[in-house]
Amino acid sequence: MDRLLLRTVPRLKEQWRGAEPATVEKIERISGRPLPSFYRWFLLRMGNSMGPLAYPTLDFSAARVLSCYGKKLVQPDPRFLLIAYESDEMMPLHLFYDFNAPARDDAMVTSREARGKELTDSFETLREMLAWGALSLFRVDRAAHTSSGSLRGNTPDFLTNLDPVMSSLGFEQPISTGRFCRLYERPDAVMVCRGTPRSGTGNRRAFDLGGASLGSLRRILGEIASARVVELQVKK
């Protein structure tokens, strides 16, 4: 994650600021369990400031998390831990860890109202959320040409069939991911794939592809389609 974020997000190293270890321990006491090791890494790296990686209306800071519990906006819960406060009053869906769904030294990120019960899952892990967001914002959205659509397979982990195809095209996977997410990058192009856990959408993932030339995007999509390891649908 260090390597991915520092090469992808401009000026991040100068602007991210971590929380003090004592502050991290306060959050751990609220959670009532050891924090996922990735969340501990995140707090020590970006618990005070996420720099250019910050979300417009979501506050992931350790200070905000502690303030929300201190003001009793949210109550300690053995299953859920607040990790980001949503300031949009029209849709105040704050982000929580769901400890009932641990994954790879991390946990599922879901959203709900402060005292609500209805869940809207976002990512299988916070690691995938941050990496997907960084590549989407700083690579795909800034690419000269983009394409988006969906991928579909016959099994829940069908994206493993796509991995060798992308590798043959020169793409690397900067971090390991689960069945709902894939991140592929090479110097001139990047592709991000995402599905929503527990959504009931079946074996389908949305993708966004960005590249330096229209020709390269066509070649990438053409190779994926001709390999026939996934069903490709291009929307734009």
Rank of each mutant, 00 (worst) to 15 (best):
L119Y: 03
G70K: 00
Y85T: 08
M91W: 14
Y69H: 07
A143D: 04
A63Q: 13
R104S: 15
D77K: 09
N161R: 11
A103Q: 14
T120K: 15
R79A: 09
T120Q: 15
M108P: 04
P76M: 05
D141H: 15
K72W: 07
D88F: 13
L66V: 02
F138G: 04
Y97V: 14
F158C: 13
L135D: 08
N161G: 12
S67E: 06
H94T: 10
A134F: 07
R104P: 00
N100L: 12
T110P: 09
S168R: 09
R64G: 00
N100D: 14
H94V: 10
L73Y: 01
P164H: 13
C68K: 05
M90G: 08
P164Q: 11
L119I: 10
F123C: 13
S148H: 14
V109F: 01
A107W: 15
G149F: 01
E89A: 13
D88H: 11
E124I: 09
T146H: 11
K71S: 00
N154M: 09
P92V: 05
S122H: 14
L130N: 02
L73I: 07
R142A: 08
D163F: 03
R152E: 12
I83Q: 03
N154E: 13
P164T: 06
V140K: 01
D157P: 13
L169S: 03
L126G: 06
S167F: 05
A131G: 04
E86G: 08
V140T: 06
